[in-house]
Amino acid sequence: MGERGRGTWGVAMRFSVFDTPLAGPIEARLDSAAKAFLDGGGLRVDFSEPKGEPALVGPDSVSWRVFKNPVSLFIGGVAAVLLEFAEPRVRSGVWDHSTFRQDPVTRLKRTGLAAMVTVYGARSVAEQMIEGVNRRHARVAGATPSGEPYSATDPELLRWVQATASYGFLEAYSAYVSPLTDADRNRYYAESQASAALYGAAGAPASLDEQKALFARMLPRLEPSGIVFEFLQIMKKAPALPQPLQLSQHSFVRAAVDITPPEVRAILGLGRRYGLRPFEARVVRRMGRRADRIVLRSAPAAQACRRLGLPEDYLYRPC
């Protein structure tokens, strides 16, 4: 079979394992993966407690809607890191002061758990967790290979990380799950202000227009790096997703490249071959939409709904 034939067959197989006939086994595996995820590399979080305590944002927020989808979260997270790594100070701070290269899965778990606690966790739990993150960030400082100093507490860098994360998760959900309006985006950026303030990201975008303005201001600072390509290879190979989603991990990484702004892709050297093929794009959208209908009892979204006395499927009902 030719190379093109093998590629098409592989994509078809990746889709078939996620389609409706295997829904039951897939739900069980994803629910089991949700339990493992909540270990967070050693930190256990119960999103169902304390009973009745609200989160930083409410269950009718765009944030709660977006963060429940494991497919778009993975894609959006990769896109966010691509944007972060385009900024040399952020790139050096992450690459030089984390275990990402040695133990990417644990690092991804911790980062993902922090995002989930920020959105779904009880306010007191989220505030305590963010305080701990800030203490660790206070110890992160150094210089880029070109000699430019950086600090993880720099509000400009925190603002960039906040904005790129918001962009990645929003655009992944909109592109591969359900289209979001500009009004949805504005709501999300406004909702993120409470957590941005706690993280020290002063001046983080509070609207879509502010996000676009920040990206335009930061564009001259962005630059290419071989680390970006090393990161992409790690994300394709690391067992970051449960089976059967691991079969689609290569496609999800390419999906992340696809939603990265074209001007940033050009700077990073991420040409067309790094993005999705036409058939692959349709497959990823089908998977994203399917994942948005699977209620995982062990996942943070369902646990948080129980904490607030809401049905587990509250976030999965038609708007």
Rank of each mutant, 00 (worst) to 15 (best):
R187A: 14
N186W: 02
A165M: 14
Y199W: 14
G226Q: 09
D184K: 05
G200W: 14
S178N: 12
R221S: 02
Q162R: 14
A213Y: 07
P224C: 00
S151W: 13
D184P: 14
L158I: 07
G147S: 02
V228C: 01
Y199R: 09
Q211K: 14
S166L: 12
P205F: 01
R221Y: 03
P220F: 01
L180W: 01
Q162I: 09
P149L: 04
I227F: 15
L170S: 14
W160V: 00
Y176W: 10
I227N: 10
Q193C: 06
D182I: 14
Q193D: 05
G168V: 08
A190N: 10
A206S: 14
R221W: 03
S174G: 09
T181S: 15
E223V: 09
Q193V: 01
L219P: 06
E191M: 08
Y189N: 08
P149Y: 03
W160A: 03
E223L: 05
R187P: 13
L222F: 10
P205W: 04
S146D: 11
S195W: 11
A190W: 07
D209G: 13
L214W: 01
G147E: 01
P145E: 08
T144P: 04
A213E: 09
Q233S: 14
A202V: 13
L232C: 07
R185D: 13
D184R: 01
Y188N: 14
L157I: 04
G168F: 00
A204P: 00
S174H: 00
A190G: 11
V177S: 07
P155M: 05
Y188W: 08
V161K: 07
K212E: 12
A196I: 10
P224H: 08
D184A: 08
A204W: 09
A163T: 03
D154A: 04
Q193T: 04
A206P: 05
T181F: 00
E156L: 06
Y189C: 11
L208A: 13
E223Y: 02
Y173F: 12
R187N: 11
Y150F: 12
P224K: 09
G203A: 09
R159P: 01
W160N: 00
T144M: 00
P145W: 10
R187S: 15
A197G: 13
P155Q: 11
M235P: 04
R159T: 03
D209W: 04
N186M: 11
S207D: 01
S195V: 14
R187Q: 13
D154C: 02
Q233E: 15
Y150M: 02
S207K: 05
A172Y: 02
R217N: 04
K212M: 13
Y188C: 12
N186V: 11
S195C: 03
G226A: 04
E156C: 08
S166Y: 11
S174Y: 02
P149I: 00
D184E: 13
R185Q: 11
A194S: 07
P220D: 00
E148H: 12
A165Q: 15
F231C: 04
P205R: 10
E223R: 07
Q211C: 12
F231N: 03
L158Q: 06
V161Q: 06
I234K: 05
T181L: 03
E230P: 12
F169E: 06
L214H: 03
S146R: 14
S178Y: 05
G226W: 01
A206E: 09
D182G: 15
A196C: 08
A172D: 07
S151R: 15
L198Q: 08
E191H: 11
T144N: 06
T181V: 03
